[in-house]
């Protein structure tokens, strides 16, 4: 259970270009199943996911995860929660150029310092599971869109997070790849991962496996 209480996010507060991206939002979310945040561009979806995923702090309000306060933690604890609980799939994939697919996947585990052989095996397992085994030693920038997306998913899963956060995951994919991606996400949900997705793509929020759609507009529930 994720509980948001009067959460706001204000950018450039007090300046002439002040933006209220999320306004006074209260909400309870299940940590199982697939939840989609739907809404037009600029409605605050990304800002909200960033706060839930401990990538940024609310300007005001509180966020609890399973009863534990996770907003407004000191940086180190915030990072620890982010690392242990959430896996991120970004709209622009955000793979690091020049590194191999395998290295990209292992990257989130470096601060946890597992034994190198263990980490390698775990990463290779994931790559097999997502049909990327042959790509393991290729440079990330040479991947096709679908491959890059699946690499990003493997990277999100390497620390075995309970919750996956995907920001506009189909924005850079064609319909075919989008459907494949949603099938993969569905499988992960079946394995017990909670999934939070932001999207304004009907392919996503009309998908059969989506358990809940939360609609946003101007930083508020619509």
């Amino acid at each position: 259970m994720i509980r948001l209480a009067q959460v706001s996010k204000v950018f450039n507060q007090g300046r002439h270009n002040e933006v209220r991206a999320v306004r006074d939002l209260s909400l309870e979310l299940d940590t199982r199943g697939i939840t989609v945040f739907k809404g037009p561009s600029g409605s605050g979806k990304t800002s909200l996911l960033a706060m839930i995923g401990c990538l940024s702090r609310p300007t005001s309000g509180r966020i609890h995860l399973e009863g534990r306060l996770i907003s407004n933690l000191p940086e180190r604890f915030m990072t620890a929660v982010r690392r242990d609980t959430f896996g991120f799939i970004f709209q622009r994939f955000n793979l690091i150029r020049g590194l191999t697919v395998l290295e990209n996947v292992m990257l989130p585990a470096y601060p946890l310092a597992p034994a190198p052989s263990t980490l390698r095996d775990r990463a290779l397992d994931l790559l097999r599971q997502f049909h990327l085994a042959e790509r393991a030693n290729n440079q990330a920038e040479w991947l096709s869109g679908g491959e890059a997306q699946r690499t990003a998913i493997c990277r999100a899963l390497i620390n075995r997070p309970r919750i996956l956060i995907a920001d506009e995951p189909t924005a850079n994919l064609d319909s075919q790849l989008s459907r494949e991606l949603l099938a993969l996400i569905g499988d992960l949900a079946d394995q017990g991962k909670g999934v939070l997705i932001s999207s304004h793509d009907p392919l996503v929020f009309d998908h059969a496996r989506v358990s809940r759609v939360v609609e946003l507009r101007d930083g508020r529930l619509a």
Partner: peptide, 12 residues
């Protein structure tokens, strides 16, 4: 930014 987003601390 990417490193931090995927779980690296500032210190790392």
């Amino acid at each position: 930014g990417i490193l931090k987003a995927i779980g690296w601390e500032t210190g790392d």
